[in-house]
Every structure is written in C-alpha cells, then in structure tokens.
Design a protein around this nucleic acid. Sequence first.
DNA 1: TAAACAATTGAAACACAATTCAATTCTTTG
DNA 2: CAAAGAATTGAATTGTGTTTCAATTGTTTA
Lengths: 200, 200
Amino acid sequence: MAYRETAKTRAKADERRTRIEQAARHVIARGGIAAASIASVAREAGCSSGLIYTYYSSRDELLRVVFARAAGHELAVVEAAVESASNAADIVDSVVEVFVRRAVTGRTLAYALLLEAVPESVQIERMALRRGYVAAIASGIEGRYQTTTSAEVAARALVGSIAENLVDVLDPAKEPPSVSAVEALITELSVFARTAIGEQ
Amino acid sequence: MAYRETAKTRAKADERRTRIEQAARHVIARGGIAAASIASVAREAGCSSGLIYTYYSSRDELLRVVFARAAGHELAVVEAAVESASNAADIVDSVVEVFVRRAVTGRTLAYALLLEAVPESVQIERMALRRGYVAAIASGIEGRYQTTTSAEVAARALVGSIAENLVDVLDPAKEPPSVSAVEALITELSVFARTAIGEQ
DNA sequence: TAAACAATTGAAACACAATTCAATTCTTTG
DNA sequence: CAAAGAATTGAATTGTGTTTCAATTGTTTA
C-alpha cells in the first residue's frame, strides 16, 4: 500500500549522514570551524541546508560530532605512538614527533582542534581530547618510569609544551614553516621533554 | 557665542572613556569576554550603548583595548618576577608561582586572557601577550643559564606547561580549586620546570 | 499505476547582537 | 539668557547566519 522504511532506505540515510560529516570535515580542514557554516557544508555535501537538520538538531551538534570524530582519530594516533614506545624517553620522543608532524601536515585541522575559537559544545570535546592526550602520556610514563613529579602534571606539561610551541606554526595568518624549521622544532622539543622527565 | 572644546570638556571625556574601560574590565572579570556585550558594558558604565561608539569604533576595538591593557598588566607582573630572580631556577619558580596564583585569584579574567573564545582582533593581543611571556622568560634564562635547548623553545614550553595545567583549574564549569590543590600544583610545576631547564 | 508517505528543497522566518542616527539634553560663550 | 554646537540617548535598523516548513520530489507497495 505504501512506502515504509527498509534496509535500502536506511543504508541511503547512513550514506547521506556520512557524506554530510565528510563534507563538514573537509570544510573545517580547509577553512577551520569558522568556515563551517550550514550553507557551506551543505554546498560541499551536495544537499540543501534544510536536509542537514534531518540528521543533526543544530549546527553545534554537527560540529560537535565531527570534531569528536577527528579528535578521536588524532588521539588514537598518539595512543599508538605511546604504546609502541619502550621507555619514557621513547614515549616523549614519539609523542613530540607524531604530534608536531601531524599538526604541520594538517595545519588548519590542527588549528581547529587546538586553538581556534569554537562553540561551547565543541569546547567540551576539545577538553576531552586534551584529557585524552594527558591520560595516554601519563599512563605510558607512569608504569615505566619514576618521574620527579606526578605523571599527570608532567603529561599535561608535555602537551602544553608542544601545543605552545605550535602556536606560531599553526597561525593561519603566517606562512607554513619550512621543513628544516619543523625538524629543528622536533629535535629541540624532544631534548626538552626528555630533560623534563629526568631522563638522560 | 558658542560651545567649544575645553580642558574641562576633555577631562570629562577622558573620565568617560576610563569609566567605559573599567566597566568592560569588570564585566569581563565577572563573566568573561562572552558577557561583554555592548549593552552590558553600557549598563555597567552607566551610559547608553550609543555612547560607547563615540569612544570606540566597534565592540571588537573596545575589547581589544581592554584586553591589551589587562594583558600588559599581567605581563608586567611576570616581568618583575623574572627580574627579581637571581638564577634560572629562581626564575622558573617565581614565574610558576606568580602565574598560578594570579590565575587562581582572577579566575575568570585569566580564563579570558588564556583560553576563552575571542574575536580575531583580541586573539592578536593574546598572541602578543604570549610572546611577551616567552620573551621575558627567555631573556631571563638566556643570560644566566646554559639550557640544553634554545631558551625560546624552553620558555614557550614553560608557558605552555603552566597554561595547560591551569586548564581544569580555570574551567568556568568547574568549582574553584582548594588552597591545598593550588599549593600542590605550584610545587609540582616548580619541580617540573626546574628539572626541565636542567637545574636540580 | 495510484496511493501513501518519506526525503528533500530553498526561500522565508527568526534570533540576536552590533551599529546607527534623529531627537533630546547638556555646556559653553557672548 | 539665547544661540551654537557638543554629548548623550535608545529605539529602530542592519547584518549575518541558523532554523523552519510548505511545497516538491522520490520511493515503496498493492
């Protein structure tokens, strides 16, 4: 008699949802959160503005979901780096390297994840990402090395040290850094971090 | 024949301007940049919204001026702490102590200065503040102590370490930290920072 | 194919603060 | 005091982007 929801229908809806999230991610990676208006995400996704509201209750909600997914991905990379390292010095080296290289490669996304002005709901996800980084590093350091201070303070300090040294590098108003500048930064941050946790 | 600008007039205008900036500072200290709408600053200053545009070309400009002044004050305090210290370990100790205590005492202002989402023009002032902190610390470290890494990277890392460890402390959604938690944080950050620069 | 209803559109409505400006109030000077 | 003009008001306007929803298009079933 009539149209009813079916597997095919649901699959198509899922695809649409995915397409919208991908579009939002692309727009953010290109121009930051500021560029991710409903209209521009819709344009990128090839749909109308209205349709986005079939999948998300508001712009903030869409941004929150997309941000959380991107953050989860970044965190997983850092967690993997921590896990594959064999001692505290290795951990901080890997974290510095992975963090800086990924930030430089995906400048605008990194800027959005770390520094850009974001709506409240997204800020909450950003805090969660930072807590995730800290937890990953702290757990890595804690088991294997007796630091002079609490692993949590040290882990936070490491995250802060890296992030602060990326501020200029990620500044959208500035030119991207040269390869040699990036290498130099990685080296110096590694030395600093190893010293900071009392290794070598 | 007519009314013309005079010393008294100018003095009154200056007073007005000062009153508006004070009002803006109060509003920000109470509720952050987000709370500093033109209407609420006007209410606090006891004048109309329109009058603010006699003194500032836009809300962003007002915020920029007020932020820059507050930032300058904070920076001067840190610079004084650096100058009064006699060696690298003293410098980092003083900076940690002054930074953390002031942040905790003026939580909302510190949040605005360091972490809150701000308009572009204010973000530029924030960057200047951070560069100021880095320069002050770096110059202090550089002359008196041979660090393992460049003084600039170390100074940035120190600023980042402190700021990151303040994130939870300053979160407006959270309770202010207990006195003992603040003391513990200062101690731990000091130990971390001294270790980081290679001093005991 | 027709009926039933879901998916999609996109222009209009809305929200919300910044900003403007005609009208009013205040100050100064001769 | 009256005229000139500056200071001030605050309601109306503007700008910008989100959100809605009546109308349209697409899909499914009998």
